[in-house]
């Protein structure tokens, strides 16, 4: 009986937490898949001024988690592999644009880390709208 009462209380607690999160969720996010090439606009502070810095690369991993949803974007910058994790619902992420849909057979493309040059190319797929 006691456990049932506390269970219903926790269910209510989940609703309260969801309502707090709902205020901060972005209403419209583009549909992103692993393997897509995206351009992410990141707001950065520079000497008291704000500006948007684009970052372009391949989505090699996604993590779903409501407010904590993230994508990992990999690109080769000056011959060095760079991976950035973006918190999708963060106000610092101004825009996300999908440039290309890639055809992949994995949920996590960590194998791209060991490849270089031509081997990192992904086949484009056309059945998903940009």
């Amino acid at each position: 009986m006691v456990s049932l009462v506390s269970f219903s209380k926790i269910m209510n607690a989940q609703e309260i937490i969801r309502s707090i999160e709902a205020e901060q969720l972005k209403p419209k996010l583009p549909e992103i898949y692993v393997g897509d090439t995206v351009r992410v606009g990141v707001i950065i502070q520079e000497g008291g001024k704000e500006r948007t810095q684009p970052y372009e690369g391949v989505v090699i991993a996604m993590r779903n988690g409501g407010i904590n949803e993230t994508i990992t974007v990999r690109r080769i910058f000056q011959g060095v592999g760079v991976e950035r994790v973006f918190l999708l619902h963060s106000p610092r992420i101004e825009s996300i644009k999908i440039l290309r849909r890639g055809k992949v057979r994995r949920a996590k493309l960590y194998y791209l880390r060991t490849r270089s040059g031509k081997a990192t190319r992904l086949k484009q797929r056309f059945d998903r709208a940009l």
Partner: peptide
């Protein structure tokens, strides 16, 4: 109060802050 659980909120600079929600 009663602990309800944890989540995260964004502050005015856009930083994610881990928070505990308490029914106080």
């Amino acid at each position: 109060g009663t602990k309800l659980g944890m989540t995260q909120v964004f502050d005015e600079t856009g930083k994610a802050i881990p928070v505990t929600v308490v029914q106080a």
